[in-house]
Computed example of a mutant assay.
Amino acid sequence: MKPVYTLAEALAQDPGRIAKTQALTLDSARPHMGLKGRHGLFASDAWWESITAGRIQTQTLTGIIERIYFAGQDSRRGDQVNSVTLRLADGSTVDEGIYAHRKQDIKLFVPGAMVTMVYALDELKAQPAADGSVDVARIVLQAFVSTG
């Protein structure tokens, strides 16, 4: 499995994302928008430590690519893809975005390739979820894809 994305690298390339996300967490005028910040502000040392310690739960998803496609309404060239349908071990399917730092790594996302994605499940301000559970943001921490 080749690592093709890490949140840490993405944030290093776009440090403004940290400031914007943290500002929304701290904005009391927007009580239904953003992360709750109960275990540290997004991407702070406390937040990363909370992930390592398990206070912020993580989820790992692994599946085989069944289909690649473009999701969204923006205009695009015919060869662009940004999403995959994954077949999980239990036989179910899920649709996920493609995360890769380098454009050439997007070519690794082909039917039959295996993908593993690791998410942080960080609590949102707006609670509860429609089903009554704790509503969380699924934040991609890492993405890996098989290379052969």
Results as ranks from 00 to 15, higher is better:
Ala126Trp: 07
Ile98Asp: 04
Lys36Asn: 05
Ala120Met: 07
Pro111Leu: 03
Glu9Ile: 07
Asp135Tyr: 04
Gly16Leu: 08
Pro3Asp: 13
Leu88Asn: 02
Leu61Asn: 05
Arg138Gly: 03
Tyr99Trp: 15
Glu123Ile: 04
Tyr69Ala: 12
Leu108Ile: 04
Gln127Glu: 07
Gln22Arg: 08
Asp14Leu: 09
Asp74Thr: 10
Pro31Tyr: 14
Thr58Leu: 11
Met117Leu: 13
Asn82Pro: 11
Gly148Tyr: 12
Gly34Lys: 02
Met117Ser: 07
Ser133Met: 06
Val4Asp: 00
Asp27Arg: 02
Ala126Val: 04
Tyr119Asp: 04
Ile139Arg: 03
Arg17Leu: 11
Pro111Arg: 00
Ala129His: 12
Val115Tyr: 05
Gln80Met: 14
Ala10Ser: 15
Ala130Tyr: 08
Leu86Ser: 03
Ile139Ser: 00
Ala71Lys: 15
Ile139Pro: 00
Ala143Glu: 07
Asp27Leu: 04
Ala89Phe: 06
Gln80Cys: 09
Asp14His: 12
Gln13Trp: 12
Val84Lys: 02
Thr60Lys: 11
Leu24Gln: 07
Leu24Asn: 02
Ile18Pro: 05
Lys20Gln: 10
Asp79His: 10
Tyr5Ser: 01
Arg102Lys: 12
Pro31Phe: 14
Ser133Val: 04
Ile64Ser: 02
Gln127Asp: 06
Thr116Ser: 14
Arg38Trp: 09
Arg87Phe: 07
Ile56Trp: 02
Lys36Glu: 11
Leu88Ile: 04
Leu11Arg: 04
